[in-house]
Design a binder for these strands. Structure first.
Length: 585
DNA sequence: GCCGTTTTCGGCCCGACTGTTTTCAGTCG
C-alpha cells in the first residue's frame, strides 16, 4: 500500500464527512493528514513498522489507527460505511469547480444525481436551477466548468510554465518600468508542476499594463480585464493571472499569493496565538486594532517574529518550526555548483560534440565536466560498446589536454538491465572517472523486481551514481514501482550517489525524496543529463528542486572542487584513496 | 480529529466573490 493510496482513502473520508455535514474542523484534520502524507519522503508503511505514525504532522491517535487498518487490510471500514451512505459517484460531483459539499449533497439527495452525465442532463433541463437558492446563473456556471474540465489539461510541468511566464514578463518589462514584477504561487515555490501562473507587480499605470498584458501575442482568450487584475488563457492552455497592487502592501500580498495554503494557514494560526491577524493587506495587532502594511516580505515575516522563509520551503510542513528555532537551512544556490557529472554528446544521442559541451560548461563557470554517453544497451541511442568507449576516452583526454579552463572527466551512463546486471564489463569501467547507471527499459516491472534491480546496481563496486532513480517523465510517464526508502538506505550505506536530474521534465529525485535522502545521509549529485550545450543551463531547475528538498551546498557532491569530489570508484575513487592516504600521513 | 506561550479542554486562518437574496450561504484560493 503506497502513500498515494492511503492519502486517497483519507481524502475520500474527508470529502464524505464534509458532505455529511460533519464539523469543519474534523474535515480539516483529515485534509491536513492527507497533505502531510502526500508530501512525505518516506513510505507510511515503514514509519508504521518503526511505530512513528504519530510523527506525521496532523496524524493523531484516531487517524494513526485508521492508517494502521488500511496498511493491514488494504481498506478502511469507516470509509466503506461512509461511502455506503451516499450514492456511488457523489465524490465526482465535488470535483467540479463551483460544487462544494452542500451542493453535492443536495444534487444527490434531491435530484438523485450521482455522475457527471446525470448532472449535465439536469443542468440542461432546468432541474438544477429549479432548486431552492439555485438559479440560472449558477446552473450555467457549473455547466461551463464541466465542459471546461473535459477539455482542459491538468497540471503542467514547470519546464513549460516557467518559460511562458518569463516570456510574458519580458514583454511587459519592455513596455513598462516594472522592477518588482515576479511570479507568485506554486511557480514561485518551484513545484514540479503548476495549475496556473500568477504574476504580481506594482505600477502606477495599472490599467495600461493590464491592457498590454491582455493583448500579448501568446494570448488565446481574455478571461478578465479589470483595473487591478487581468486574466488570460495562453495558447498552451495555461491560465495566467496578472495582479497589480499598491506598493505599500506588496510584501503581504506577495506572501499571501505565494502560499502554499498550508503555509499560510499555519502562519496565521501561529500569529493568532501572538495576538496578530495576518491577511493579504498586512498584519493587525488585535488588541490595538491597527493594520500595519509591508512593502516587502522580509519585514512581514519579521513582524511575526520569524526570519524570511525561502519560497521553496513554504509547503506548510516543518519550515515554520525551523524558522522559529533559527534552524532554516542556507539553501544551495546555482553558483555553488562547480561541475556537471552527467552529459551526452554526439557520440551517442546528444546533439553537440565533446568540445561544444565542454565550452558550454566552461561558460557556466564550471571547473569540470563528465562526459557520460549511453552504453551499448541503448542501441537506439547509438550507445557505446567497449571499443568505441575506448576511442571516446582518448578523444576526451585529448580535448582536455588542449582546452584551458575546464577539466574533462571520462565516463559512461550504463543501462541497468532488467535483471540488474550492467551492460559493460567491469574491466572497462575500472578505467573511467565517473560510472553512472540507470534504468531505461522494462519499466513496468513490479515493485519487488524493480527494487532488487536498482539495489543490485547500487551495490555494484564500480557504480558511482544512479541517475534519474525513479524514471518519471512529468506529464508523460509515472515513476517506476520501486521501494524508494530501501534504495535510499542502500545508497547511504554503500556511498553510491543518487542523482538529482535537473531536466525540467524529470526533476528526479523529486523534492520529498531529496529531503529523505538528506536525512539518511545519501550522497547527492546534481546534474543536467544535457543532450546539447544549451541544456547545461537547465541546471537551475535542479537547483530549485534541491532547495525544495532543503539541500545546502554541502549536501551536493559537485559543489566540491574536483580534488575533493569523492565518488565510489574510478579515478575519482582513486583520489578518494589518495586523500585518505595523505590524511593518514 | 488534532493539539498545546490557551497543554487533556476548548479552541481551530482570512478575505473575496458570486448568486441569491434583502442579510447571507456556499465556494474558492
Amino acid at each position: 500500500m503506497r502513500n498515494a493510496d492511503i492519502a486517497m482513502i483519507l481524502k475520500e473520508v474527508a470529502d464524505l464527512l464534509e458532505i455529511k455535514g460533519e464539523t469543519a474542523f474534523k474535515v480539516r484534520a483529515y485534509r491536513k493528514a492527507v497533505t502531510s502524507i502526500e508530501h512525505l519522503g518516506i513510505e507510511v508503511a515503514s514509519l508504521r513498522s518503526e511505530g512513528k505514525l504519530r510523527e506525521i504532522p496532523g496524524v493523531g491517535e484516531a487517524i494513526a489507527e485508521k492508517i494502521t487498518e488500511i496498511l493491514d487490510t488494504g481498506e478502511l471500514q469507516y470509509h466503506q460505511r461512509l461511502r455506503a451512505e451516499f450514492p456511488h459517484g457523489i465524490l465526482v460531483l465535488m470535483d467540479v469547480p463551483g460544487i462544494g459539499p452542500k451542493t453535492a449533497y443536495r444534487l444527490c439527495t434531491e435530484l438523485g444525481i450521482s455522475n457527471l452525465e446525470q448532472l449535465e442532463a439536469a443542468l440542461l433541463d432546468g432541474r438544477v436551477s429549479g432548486l431552492f437558492r439555485m438559479g440560472e446563473k449558477t446552473a450555467a456556471n457549473i455547466l461551463r466548468h464541466i465542459q471546461a474540465a473535459r477539455s482542459r489539461e491538468k497540471r503542467v510541468p514547470i519546464g513549460i510554465a516557467l518559460p511562458l511566464a518569463e516570456e510574458i514578463m519580458d514583454h511587459l518589462r519592455r513596455c513598462f518600468d516594472l522592477p518588482d514584477l515576479t511570479p507568485a504561487g506554486s511557480l514561485r515555490r518551484f513545484r514540479d508542476t503548476v495549475r496556473d501562473i500568477d504574476l504580481m507587480c506594482t505600477s502606477d499605470r495599472a490599467k495600461e499594463v493590464i491592457e498590454t498584458f491582455c493583448s500579448l501575442p501568446m494570448v488565446e482568450a481574455v478571461i478578465a480585464r479589470g483595473s487591478t487584475k487581468g486574466s488570460i488563457l495562453a495558447h498552451s492552455g495555461l491560465q495566467v493571472d496578472l495582479r497589480i497592487v499598491e506598493p505599500g502592501s506588496f510584501g503581504s500580498l506577495l506572501q499571501h499569493f505565494t502560499g502554499s495554503r498550508e503555509h499560510n494557514t499555519t502562519m496565521r494560526e501561529r500569529a493568532q496565538r501572538l495576538g496578530l491577524k495576518l491577511s493579504e493587506y498586512g498584519i493587525t495587532d488585535v488588541s490595538a486594532g491597527v493594520l500595519e502594511r509591508f512593502t516587502g516580505e522580509e519585514s512581514f515575516y519579521r513582524r511575526t517574529g520569524l526570519p524570511w522563509i525561502p519560497p521553496e520551503l513554504r509547503e506548510g510542513g516543518l519550515e515554520i518550526l525551523a524558522a522559529e528555532q533559527g534552524r532554516l537551512p542556507i539553501l544551495l544556490e546555482e553558483g555553488d555548483l562547480r561541475g556537471d557529472l552527467h552529459v551526452h554528446t554526439s557520440w551517442s544521442d546528444g546533439r553537440d560534440n565533446i568540445e561544444a559541451m565542454a565550452l558550454a560548461a566552461r561558460d557556466m563557470g564550471y571547473e569540470y565536466l563528465a562526459i557520460t554517453d549511453h552504453s551499448r544497451g541503448r542501441g537506439i541511442a547509438r550507445g557505446l560498446d567497449a571499443e568505441r568507449l575506448r576511442e571516446q576516452v582518448d578523444e576526451v583526454r585529448a580535448i582536455d589536454a588542449r582546452l584551458p579552463g575546464i577539466r574533462l572527466l571520462t565516463g559512461i551512463e550504463l543501462d541497468i538491465r532488467a535483471d540488474g546486471s550492467l551492460d559493460l564489463p567491469d574491466e572497462v569501467l575500472a578505467g573511467l572517472d565517473v560510472v553512472i547507471a540507470s534504468v531505461h527499459s522494462s519499466m513496468n516491472q513490479d515493485m519487488d523486481k524493480m527494487t532488487a534491480r536498482v539495489l543490485k546496481a547500487i551495490e555494484h563496486p564500480y557504480v558511482d551514481i544512479v541517475a534519474h532513480p525513479t524514471c518519471r517523465i512529468l506529464g508523460e510517464r509515472d515513476p517506476v514501482a520501486m521501494d524508494v526508502e530501501s534504495v535510499l538506505r542502500a545508497a547511504a550505506r554503500t556511498g553510491t550517489a543518487l542523482e538529482i536530474n535537473a531536466m525540467p521534465d524529470r526533476l528526479d529525485l523529486k523534492d520529498a525524496h531529496i529531503y529523505r535522502a538528506r536525512q539518511l545521509g545519501v550522497r547527492l549529485v546534481l546534474s543536467t543529463d544535457a543532450h546539447c550545450g544549451q541544456h547545461v543551463g537547465l541546471v537551475r531547475y535542479g537547483v530549485r528542486t534541491a532547495r525544495r528538498g532543503w539541500c545546502q551546498a554541502a549536501d551536493i557532491v559537485n559543489t566540491r572542487p574536483l580534488e575533493e569530489v569523492v565518488l565510489k570508484t574510478g579515478m575519482l575513487g582513486a583520489s578518494k584513496r589518495e586523500v585518505a592516504t595523505r590524511h593518514n600521513e
